[in-house]
């Protein structure tokens, strides 16, 4: 899929986003503190093909949610470009052209309790994008569209009259998905859509997302910290660490032939539900502060394979086995690709 003709649906190139978290100017001057910049996203390149599910995984603070918000335009990028179906999102264009682009990409949020306006009825919540993009001309048509959307997410038209607080977390997430689908988008950015849900409800939502993808030919950018979920839903996976992409690979390859030491460490943390006796080897250390990231390869302080070069030089992305990996040890051949297998649960 990624090498299908070169025309990528979504392309992020050299994307950076820095946040200024300094104290106010006066405080800084009085206390003699320097400016503080968080490099939330520090130069990432991603290409997403039409119809695939590209997942970004990483621990909190790695910048994966910031990428999601950059893509849908909630933040302007500090540097780099976002191309959507051949259109540079930063390019100058008229309001209506911009709206036409926005209509084609929507977002599903993490917290089903915060992502729906508590004062609005579900009908109005779902109707809002239809109204905003002027997709419906008369009331009857709007009514029909909203009812169809409610049915598509396995709710009933009668649910439209209720308020969000009358629903459970899973049902709210369905409303959230219905709203995202309302403008008939082609590309959905999903920011941890199931991490606030119980596992049985998570399964319902993941199944729903797979069904909808197949029915409407959707492309997903899926953000998650849960590797099992990512394994289940993704076509390709990108692993982020401290604002950088350390490895990208087709899902099966990433899980069975992980290359970057951080990817291996993350895979080690997946609980062993099958109880094969596989030992989880907890990795020492914690994610450093993004305010003051380590030099060179940002993973070097926790990496068992780091040498002097890793401390100084930032590794470049190297193409390997249908993916990329940014690691000196792999590039120099110091570190062999690891084979992993997983027992199928009965």
């Amino acid at each position: 899929m990624p090498d299908g003709g070169g025309a990528q649906f979504v392309r992020l190139a050299g994307l950076k986003r820095y946040f200024d978290v300094s104290a106010p100017w006066l405080v800084r001057k009085i206390e003699g503190r320097p400016r503080q910049i968080v490099q939330a996203v520090d130069g990432i390149d991603i290409e997403i093909a039409k119809g695939e599910t590209f997942s970004l995984v990483g621990e909190s603070g790695c910048g994966k949610s910031t990428v999601a918000r950059l893509v849908v335009g909630l933040y302007p990028p500090t540097a780099g470009t976002i191309e959507f179906d051949g259109n540079d999102m930063a390019g100058r264009r008229s309001r209506s052209d911009m709206a036409a682009l926005r209509r084609r990409m929507q977002m599903i949020f993490q917290d089903p309790y915060a992502s729906l306006n508590p004062r609005w009825r579900v009908f109005d919540i779902i109707a809002e994008p239809i109204r905003a993009f002027g997709l419906s001309t008369d009331k009857a048509d709007l009514q029909k569209r909203v009812e169809d959307l409610l049915r598509q997410v396995k709710l009933t038209p009668a649910d439209g009259r209720k308020y969000p607080h009358e629903f459970s977390g899973g049902q709210r997430q369905r409303v959230s998905i219905a709203r995202a689908l309302a403008s008939q988008p082609e590309f959905l950015v999903c920011d941890e859509p199931t991490s606030a849900l119980d596992v049985s409800v998570q399964a319902q939502i993941l199944n729903l997302m797979v069904d909808l993808q197949r029915r409407f030919g959707l492309t997903y950018l899926f953000i998650s910290h849960n590797l099992a979920v990512v394994y289940h839903i993704s076509t390709r996976v990108g692993v982020m660490y401290l604002g950088r992409l350390v490895e990208v690979a087709p899902t099966e390859t990433l899980f069975t032939r992980p290359k970057h030491p951080y990817t291996r460490m993350l895979l080690d943390t997946i609980p062993d539900l099958d109880m094969t006796g596989r030992q989880r080897s907890p990795v020492a250390g914690e994610v450093p502060s993004p305010l003051n990231p380590p030099s060179g390869c940002t993973f070097h302080p926790r990496c068992p394979f780091a040498n002097d070069r890793c401390k100084i030089e930032r590794p470049k992305a190297l193409s390997i086995e249908g993916g990329t990996v940014a690691c000196h040890a792999i590039a120099e051949g110091r570190l062999a690709v690891e084979e992993r297998s997983y027992a199928a649960n009965s």
Partner: peptide, 9 residues
């Protein structure tokens, strides 16, 4: 069953 399984996709 609702927990995604790493063995089989």
């Amino acid at each position: 069953g609702s927990i995604p399984n790493l063995g089989v996709r």
